[in-house]
Amino acid sequence: MKPKHPTVICINTDWCKGCGICAAFCPKQVLVMNQRDKAEVVAAENCIACKQCEQRCPDLAIQVIKSPAKEEKEAS
């Protein structure tokens, strides 16, 4: 079952320089590099909010906002 409030992945395309690190190391293939050489979310529903993309991004261009359900679960 898909979560009611899925994780939101914000990509700042003005800052993204298209290195591809996020897409290459995403464990769930959530991200791809599009034709403009920018990171793009193609499978948000698969995101496990591990934040590896956000933390590896050399351009500080990705922000992963967890669903409230996930945050609650982690907090408990």
Partner: peptide
């Protein structure tokens, strides 16, 4: 792809 951005991050 420069690693320095990742260090900054």
């Amino acid at each position: 792809g420069c690693g320095h951005g990742t260090v900054l991050n």
